[in-house]
Amino acid sequence: MRILLLEDEKKINDMLTLYIRQEGHTVKSFLHAEDALKAFAMEGYDLVISDLMLDGMQGETFISRIRNQSDAYIIVLTAKVGSEPKLSLLRKGVDDYITKPFAIDEVLLKLRNIERRIEREHTDRFTHKGDIYAIKEKTNRITRNAVSVNLNPTEIKIIRFLMKHPGQTLSRDQIIGHCLSESEAFDRIVDTYIKNIRRKLADKDLIETVYGEGYRFKGVRHA
């Protein structure tokens, strides 16, 4: 995950940066809200972790600015107590808050959960005959009922393309145009890929052959 950290207390900033990096995330840390905002505008981040009490710009202002330009996850570090400040944070579009003094595990587990949620958001899903298929964007792997199925990248590309047009007959040329490189661009290779997909998924009906026209996807897409 790409994480932006804003915390004006240097010791806490250093500590968090270190621990989060150790978990394998990419962290950019800032002591001042202005710098953080500039960096956020330039690069994409999955998650913003921000302290609430900042010198200069108020934490709330910073959060509102981030929320105005992005849907990135926001976790707030707060030393405030009571439900009123928390409610106002949630109202501002903060996804979660961590109360100081926090346990490292609390922070890291929350990051892990957010990472999983981000992954889920970037996963295409469809069902067919009671089976649930999922294609994760990040890993480019397909699972059936959460069990990984070993499809190669081109096969996954083809499924993705078909999936995006459910119930629609797609010609071999269309498939080639969207999914294959020019070097392997001839009709019959599509048939081979489809055959392999059917075999690997052990599902003959998911992709239906429309004689003389092409292929039709019979799975049902869902969020």
Binding site: L18, Q22, F102, A103, I104, D105
Partner: peptide
């Protein structure tokens, strides 16, 4: 809370071999 966060973070970091 700020000093406490630092203390807790450091102590836990040591305890968890971070």
């Amino acid at each position: 809370k700020t000093p406490l966060t630092i203390i807790r973070g450091l102590v836990e970091g040591i305890a968890q071999n971070r």
